[in-house]
């Protein structure tokens, strides 16, 4: 099937075109990666040496002192623990909730499905806003609790619809034959549909985990003054904002900044940034083919 190339090879214009494409894409990759590599290098560099400047993507005076230091702050250790806990619990609970609801909505013989779909879809557009929601959390006595990280964000319409779109593609005949064998709807969901929905579940698990790991505003709003419940992102936010000029965030006066006067706060910031970013870096490339598929499916279905 091979068509013979002309002896001249590819035309000149095509070669220039290829060059432009590669330069552009490589440029984007550099711009994307450089900030991370720079921060990584600074986090492993001696903090006094860093002040001299000129660190690019490798450390000049290698040290682990910055990491030693941040792991000795009790507030960061607590933050790490809470962040891991909310990520694990939030992902598992959120995944079960979204998939159960999605399964009920994927059943053509479920009478409520049309109503529940619209009822759920509306929540993507209508919201009471910040202040009514704040008072709801207060009235439910969820201020200063761990539950505020899990319960209010339990079901997201977007996630439910992505899972349902996937479940819709599973042949219904499979469920009917299971029914004839006497399986109830919950068994069908748990034993047949869930295992077959792994690609969609992997996508949503990633979204939920990243969302939990990255959120800081709920901590700021509801648990900011409770040192035993603050998360890693929130601690990082405090450290970052405390040295910005005229900050608007420093409402809880971190004692972290005082301890940091011994080592340059800059290096500590860099080390925390790496600790916060690393877990995500280690996970997302392995789920790439799932979330690419999940996003495409979600976009097609609405």
């Amino acid at each position: 099937m091979s068509t013979k190339q002309s002896p001249m090879g590819t035309p000149m214009s095509d070669r220039i075109f290829n060059l432009v494409v590669y330069v552009f894409v490589i440029g984007v990759m550099i711009v994307t990666l450089y900030p991370f590599l720079n921060v990584l290098a600074l986090s492993f560099n001696d903090s006094i040496d860093s002040v001299r400047g000129g660190i690019t993507i490798y450390p000049r005076e290698f040290t682990l002192r910055n990491y030693d230091l941040i792991f000795s702050f009790p507030s960061l250790l607590t933050g790490f623990k809470i962040s891991v806990l909310r990520t694990v619990i939030g992902t598992i609970v959120g995944l079960i909730s979204a998939s159960m609801l999605a399964y009920a909505l994927s059943r053509p013989d479920f009478q409520g499905r049309r109503f529940v779909s619209v009822y759920l879809a509306l929540t993507m557009y209508v919201s009471g806003g910040l202040i009514p929601f704040y008072f709801l959390i207060k009235d439910l006595h969820m201020m200063n609790t761990f539950a505020v990280y899990i319960i209010p964000g339990l079901v997201s319409a977007f996630n439910v619809f992505i899972i349902r779109s996937f479940m819709d593609t599973i042949p219904y005949a499979l469920q009917e034959s299971a029914k004839l064998d006497g399986a109830n709807d919950f068994t069908i969901y748990w034993r047949i549909i869930l295992p077959m929905s792994k690609p969609a579940l992997a996508t949503i698990a990633l979204f939920l985990a990243v969302g939990q790991w990255n959120s800081w505003f709920d901590t700021y709003l509801y648990n900011g003054s409770n040192e035993s419940l603050t998360t890693l992102q929130f601690e990082l936010m405090k450290v970052l904002q405390s040295t910005t000029s005229g900050n608007n965030a420093d409402i809880h006066n971190p004692n972290l900044t005082q301890v940091m006067s011994t080592v340059s706060p800059e290096s500590v910031k860099m080390a925390i940034t790496i600790v916060v970013t690393l877990p995500i870096l280690l996970v997302y490339p392995f789920l790439q083919r799932y979330f690419v598929k999940g996003m495409t499916l979600g976009a097609v279905k609405g």
């Binding site: 159960m100 009920a104 909505l105 059943r107 409520g112 529940v116 929540t123 009471g128 008072f135 339990l154």
Partner: peptide, 23 residues
């Protein structure tokens, strides 16, 4: 079973998405 699997969330959505409108 389908009702048991969906109604708790319908209630949940009411509390966290619709009730705040009363605010």
């Amino acid at each position: 079973y389908l009702y048991a699997m969906s109604l708790p969330f319908v209630l949940w959505v009411f509390v966290f998405s619709y009730y705040p409108l009363w605010g």
